[in-house]
Amino acid sequence: MGVALSEVDGQKPLYDYGVDSLQAVEIRNRALKNMHSDISVFDILSAMPLADVAAKIALKSKLVKVTAASED
């Protein structure tokens, strides 16, 4: 993406880093291939903060098992 890691703010949306529709498709394809997570291009290009996009990818990933916390 051409952005230094030290300049990435997880509370900013990806479009703040210049992500366009072609890059969003590439991000979607990588999430599907590497994380087995089907996220929409719309989610990637939305105003959703980067940290929320990452959480959504993890939540939808078939590699991550999410369990509900039990109430004591």
Rank of each mutant, 00 (worst) to 15 (best):
A69M: 12
A54M: 07
S46T: 07
L22R: 08
A4E: 15
I39S: 00
F42Y: 13
H36F: 03
Q11D: 14
M35W: 08
R30K: 06
A51S: 10
S37C: 02
N29L: 09
V64F: 12
D16P: 02
D20W: 08
P49D: 06
R28P: 04
E7K: 08
A31M: 13
V3N: 05
I57D: 01
N34W: 04
L50P: 00
A69V: 13
V8M: 03
R30N: 09
Y15S: 02
L50C: 01
D16K: 15
I57Q: 01
S6A: 15
M1A: 11
D52G: 00
H36L: 05
V3S: 03
V64E: 11
D20G: 14
V66L: 10
S70E: 14
R30Y: 05
L32I: 14
L32R: 09
K12W: 07
A55M: 06
A31L: 06
N34T: 09
N34L: 09
D38N: 15
N29W: 06
A47M: 07
A55V: 04
V3R: 06
G2S: 07
L63A: 13
N29G: 04
L45G: 00
S21R: 12
S21Y: 10
I27H: 04
N34A: 11
S21A: 12
I27N: 04
H36M: 06
S46G: 03
I44Y: 02
H36G: 05
A4V: 02
L59P: 00
D16N: 15
L32Y: 07
L22M: 14
L63H: 15
I57P: 01
Y15A: 00
L59F: 09
Y17W: 03
V3D: 05
S37A: 15
L5Y: 10
V19W: 00
M48S: 03
D16F: 12
D9E: 12
Y15G: 04
D38C: 09
E26N: 10
V19S: 00
H36D: 12
S6D: 14
S21V: 14
S70R: 14
M1D: 12
V66A: 13
K56W: 00
Y17K: 02
S70W: 13
